[in-house]
């Protein structure tokens, strides 16, 4: 564990030549009368981890939920602007939300396994999207997803036990397995470690670091250290504005924006 920690803290170099996976142009969000986001334009590059940081209520979770249109489930929320996924506007009226969410998966703040068996939890997504032609294929998807989420060894003998019976960290990894079982292109994570203890957090962080080889990951976090450990790009939000975005190493060593400087040195937030 110590070894992997060490590689984390150094952080792999940011490669500049990566293509843009999701691009947002002037995204605003209103909750009823209240404006929560004031025109965010942010590019998210492929196969790396983008961290969204900022004080509570700054709009980082709201922005995250725009990326797979989860804000649609809130009656009062109204989203304006453009978000492109591979050049295609996801707020286009012709776009199928269900398909979008299969391409842009989400992991939530609190582990939320369904009250079903571990197997059923992972098989849920593939089943509803018809990803497996037969039982064997489904079985394979479940096993691969659990392996990629680093959970397989711990649960392989009790796949039919309820997912809610696992520990907090295991539950969160189960939720990650559930999300990757649909083979999404992007995975959104909303403070995935805030309900976990430090050891479970370390495991999940290692997992995120591995997943970035295959997935584009956007993670909201309150922990500056976490952002520094897992992300290559960091975006700082403040009061509904995007204060600064840049390579994580630079953001934490030499930020341009005064607000970022204040936040990461703990002056507010």
């Amino acid at each position: 564990m110590d070894m992997s920690r060490a590689t984390f803290e150094k952080g792999p170099a940011v490669s500049q030549d990566k293509t843009i996976k999701m691009a947002s142009k002037d995204v605003t969000v209103h909750y009823g009368q209240k404006q929560a986001l004031n025109g965010i334009s942010l590019d998210i590059k492929e196969r790396q981890v983008t961290a969204l940081i900022g004080p509570s209520g700054c709009g980082k979770s709201t922005y995250l939920r725009c990326l797979n249109r989860m804000n649609d489930t809130i009656d009062t929320a109204k989203v304006d602007g453009k978000i492109l996924l591979d050049g295609e506007n996801i707020y286009d009226p012709d776009l199928d939300v269900v398909e979008l969410r299969a391409r842009v998966g989400m992991v939530f703040q609190k582990p939320n396994p369904f009250p079903k068996s571990i197997w059923e939890n992972v098989a849920y997504g593939p089943k509803i999207h018809g990803l497996a032609k037969n039982k064997d294929q489904l079985e394979e998807i479940v096993h691969t997803s659990l392996k990629r989420a680093g959970l397989y060894k711990e649960v392989k003998d009790r796949l039919d036990e309820p997912g809610t019976g696992l520990s907090g960290g295991q539950q969160q990894r189960l939720c990650i397995a559930r999300a990757i079982a649909v083979s999404p292109e992007v995975i959104l994570m909303d403070e995935p470690c805030s309900a976990l203890d430090p050891i479970a957090t370390a495991t999940v962080e290692e997992l995120i670091d591995e997943l970035k080889q295959n997935f584009t990951i956007v993670i909201v976090t309150h922990s500056m250290q976490q952002a520094a450990r897992v992300s290559q790009v960091t975006a700082m939000f403040h009061l509904g504005d995007l204060a600064e975005v840049g390579a994580t190493e630079k953001m934490f060593s030499n930020p341009d924006d005064k607000r970022t400087q204040d936040y990461i040195t703990g002056r507010f937030g």
């Binding site: 969410r101 989400m106 369904f114 009250p115 999300a179």
Partner: peptide, 27 residues
């Protein structure tokens, strides 16, 4: 039924009725 279960299912791309049938009603 906790909102997080709904979000979890919708976030995986399930429709509302799939969410009701497979997650909410069982819970």
């Amino acid at each position: 039924v906790p909102r997080s279960l709904r979000d979890g299912s919708l976030g995986l791309g399930a429709t509302r009725s799939e969410t009701v049938k497979r997650v909410i009603l069982p819970a």
